[in-house]
Design a protein around this nucleic acid. Structure first.
Lengths: 249, 249
DNA sequence: GCACTTTTTTGACGGATCGTCAAAAATGGA
DNA sequence: TCCATTTTTGACGATCCGTCAAAAAAGTGC
């Protein structure tokens, strides 16, 4: 029992470290996220912090794992939405919207670490965990696509593979959000006032291009989006503009 | 005249610094890209390097500017392709393919800096230059879309704006390539053996979804791709697999 | 309560890097 | 050749990462 109490104490501390690190990362950027400052903030010495994480990148990696887990959870939840396959796929898009808007720092750390050389410095254990989450996300998508095929809503075009479609949807989602989150890049000046809505439409055109019924141009998906928010993600208020992270020097 | 000679000398040196930095960035990652090592490699002192660039991030920023310029150049070139609007848009996709495969380090530095807090530390002059390039790229895309509309090949759907479509295409391109370049992420294990081909198809489905004629499913774009490579980008050999950057610790 | 062992925590330290700046070297002109 | 101006240098302070021996705390047997 004492073992458990000690264990809890350690877990609580680890969570504190991660929370502090996440805040610093979001508010002040990666460079300003210092091991000394983290240690000071959680009121433990640096050595103790190093007992939880082997290096600075390892903290970032764990943040990424958490992000991937949160995202996967939202995906699992969204996939249970009652509706036709295309509506369920739409729900996955909403899940990502919710993820980005609820945990912008998670998404940011994910992007930062995956696109940098820092990733290689992290432990293989954490890398595998992220890999598993990505794998899960893709398989959920592919599962819905296969459902659509078996229900006759979708016919996979020649030379195209199911996973490729997941790849494309994943890519457009990651890419558009990545652009949105880019600091100091005003999308409005490019004529895009609601990037989330723009992404929605683009995803739908992609699915329309595959001939996935019911087509966006024919059905009323506005009502579907409302239903998804109500049934799967209540208490989440959709924001019109992109959340832009403040990055002090 | 002596002024010009001196100027040339300085420019040559600046190019050397950037070249060295780029190599280090690609081969060993951002952390290993050290000001001292750069100075040593170009055979000047650190102080001299700092006369060219105010800080380490500024070098990365200039690499990003160069990347954006190269990409824009390829775009301008691709836009001159003789063909219908949709074929010209396809040529832009090829331009990006060529960009990624010819200058993977450029793309990587672009991704790294845009998605990190480092961007804010760079000089506003360089930020504006990158902004101008992105603006140019988007306007080229939007121009082709407008051509398609005026030629009757495309009808913009209700509630959709031209720039939104550019945003979507840009997003899917950036996103998919970003995923491809992610180190230690084997796309093959997700069932994607040729991510470039997958991206092509996804872009085409997106355009098909907009009803942009001639539709991918009806026309033979394979021949178009070949023509684009032959006429616009000769001497560039398309690779089947993604170029994966090696990132040493 | 005490003496001793084991575990945990600490923070000073070595090594490395960034960016600065006074001094040295090079350049240019009279 | 001498001196003013520009350019280059590299030692230096500050900062940060990760380590490790020593100190503190927790555990154990009596």
């Amino acid at each position: 029992m004492a073992r458990t109490r000690k264990q809890k104490e350690i877990e609580r501390r680890e969570e504190m470290i991660l929370e502090t690190a996440r805040e610093m990362l979001l508010k002040e950027g990666y460079v300003a996220m210092t091991m000394d400052r983290i240690a000071e903030a959680v009121d433990y010495s640096k050595g103790t912090v190093y007992q939880h994480f082997s290096c600075k990148e390892d903290i970032l990696a764990e943040l990424t794992v958490q992000a991937a887990r949160r995202r996967t959870d939202l995906f699992e939840k969204a996939a249970t939405f009652q509706g036709c396959p295309r509506e369920r796929m739409t729900a996955l898009g909403v899940a990502t919207e919710v993820f980005i808007q609820s945990y912008p720092d998670h998404f940011q750390s994910e992007q930062l670490i995956l696109n940098s050389s820092l990733w290689c410095k992290t432990s293989s254990k954490r890398r595998e965990q992220v890999h598993a989450c990505i794998s899960r996300i893709l398989s959920i998508m592919s599962g819905i696509i296969r459902d659509a095929v078996s229900q006759g809503d979708l016919t996979i075009p020649k030379h195209t593979k199911v996973d490729e479609i997941s790849f494309g949807l994943w890519g457009i989602t990651v890419g558009c959000h990545s652009i949105m989150m880019t600091p100091d890049l005003n999308l409005l000046s490019f004529g895009i006032d609601d990037p989330f809505a723009a992404l929605r439409r683009n995803c739908n055109y992609l699915l329309d291009g595959l001939g996935w019924k019911p087509l966006f141009r024919e059905a009323d998906y506005k009502e579907t989006y409302q239903r998804i928010y109500q049934e799967v993600f209540p208490h989440v208020i959709r924001q019109q503009t992109a959340t832009k992270p403040i990055e002090a020097s």
